[in-house]
Design a protein around this nucleic acid. Sequence first.
DNA 1: ACTACGCCCCTTTTT
DNA 2: GGGGCGTAGT
Length: 684
Amino acid sequence: MNLNKEQYEACHAPLGHNLVIASAGTGKTSTIVGRIAVLLNDKRLKPEQILLLTFTNKASNEMIGRVAKMFGKDIANRICSGTFHSVAYKCLKERRGLLLKQPRELKILFKSIYDKRLFKSEKNKQYSYEYLYESYSLFRSSTVSKSYEQWLEDRNDSQLEFIDIYEGIFEEYEALKESYGYVDYNDLLILYKDEIISLRTEGKMDYIEVLCDEYQDTNPLQDSIINTINPQSLFCVGDYDQSIYAFNGADISIITNFTTTHSDARIFSLSKNYRSGKYILELANKVIEHNPRIYPKQLEVFKTTSTHKPELLKYNDLFSQYSEIARKISSLHKSGIDYGDMAVIYRNNSSADGIQASLRALNIDSKRKGSASFFDSKEVEFLLCLCSTMANPRDMMSYIHILSHAKGIGSSIAKDIFEALMIVGDNNCTKGLLNPKRDITCYKRGVSNSAAGLFDEFFRLEDRARFNDILHKDFHSHPILEHYKIQRDAALFLNDFFIFYKQNYHINTPSALIRQILKTDFYNNFLDSLIKQRVKNKDGSILQKDYEDSKKKALYRLEILQNLSANYRDLKTFLNATMLGSSEFAEGGGVNLLSVHASKGLEFEVVFVIDLMDGRFPNHKLASKSGSIEEERRLFYVALTRAKEMLYLSFAKNDIHKGKEYEPSIFLYECEMMDKKSHSRKEV
DNA sequence: ACTACGCCCCTTTTT
DNA sequence: GGGGCGTAGT
């Protein structure tokens, strides 16, 4: 292996507490791979005694891939590696069957509890449900010793008067999560920590060295996992100038206090930059010097021959910026650069649509990372909901999503039906649906408000068999049909769902299941109405061509999902994988479109950093909230240091569409791409 | 009390 | 294009 002196010394550090400060582009990956080689060779560790924690699974795969080239796949694959979450999941999977649930879903669950407990008149002073949810998630990852009350006191003590309400909400939320079998990202880590403790007492936790990549973005919960493992040796690699995940609880003091936490700590520093050309580095250095220096540190240029100077591109309008950059990309391509070697990087994902459309206008493909849009699209979401009900027979949220598509059934009746299925199925909706206990009433007699002095009005139960002319013979006397609000259309929908479920629930291979689902009338009826709704014009008309196009697009997505599922043998694993690796999968090929956060750890020949306007980047609203202007500056630094050869910075003076004027980003002045004298701007 | 529908808002970053 | 919210209608 080719290592420079600094890298070599870090790799050969004795077992103990080692911290490597690795600035951007200084060969961090090589150093970690080198360290693993040293552990396996010189230190005689078994691969099982090594735990590698990375920020993305992609990074883990790359490192393990390089270890495999040196030691063979057998050895490399015996090393436990991945993100904190995926390592936790792998470990827990063996002992219990857990099912991860998307934050989006859990947020809805959270909202339902919140709405029940807060009256509107109080809401202007209190946290919104969204904010409270975020706050609670952040709390769980930012501290392991404080109560929510203590934590809140430090951040916003004016909210303390609501503490009892808030804690009541959290308590109920936790209880419901438990009863529906849901696990979120934080739960995963917390469960893992408990698991480590029991594995340790059983003597089954025998990691000797834990390597932690991107250590600057570790949050206290994750750090506590490392501390709980408490390995003989630690090898943490990070760069405080690239700490950009404060909103996720990342605590920069974890890396800056390493020497105080571990009295025997050794610090190594990598400063030779192999990635970027001289002028790009000068620019990056200029910017980051505006942040307080924790240790003195400068990137040293290795690629002195590179002659490209970063360029500033100014445009009058936001959209002319996008289309001109698209043209620039096209001409760079003609000069011989692959689209895949170019990237457009932005602060907010809202920039992506514009640039993507402009590229498409020139017939240039692009791939967007963090394609939340893929798993969020209704066609995919609905399909995954159907799968979820099969993998987790008490998945209330999925039932509500599905059943709400029936005419006349909204979330409330859907929940009644779910609860009914749980009752007639002994807490198992699969059983409740297919094999219900028939001798009991599954709907609670209405305890409707006696306050108004109404009669003891209760749930009027309907004849189960009232629709039996249209229903399947095994379904026409199903207890859930007793709900008095179920009308003909809804009964038919439930009937179709029943048949659908009965035909498919036993299939456990994800790809086979999805293939079957895509063939069913039940799914296709859903898809058809979804697409019609999408292409419907204001007057209600539908153009056949729009319909075809939209359908093609949806089918393409479903095909991707189908292909994705082929990598998994069982349903739960597949569903969980859509959670753990969803952002790492990108649709299509071509020019890379990424947010700064998503660009972390990547590099490209040509980089465009766009929309460099005050307010957008830095984003003042955010900077004042959780992060800081320093964090925004680090983001800018990360964006710049992705570039190997060419770097373009761009901004637009106006958004003609919205009638908005913009000032250039202060970072453009800080890196001296813009001249201070020519504009009057106050220093921040 | 609940659903359906139309209107307005906006759109931070991730495991 | 989607989510939240208010209103009309059952």
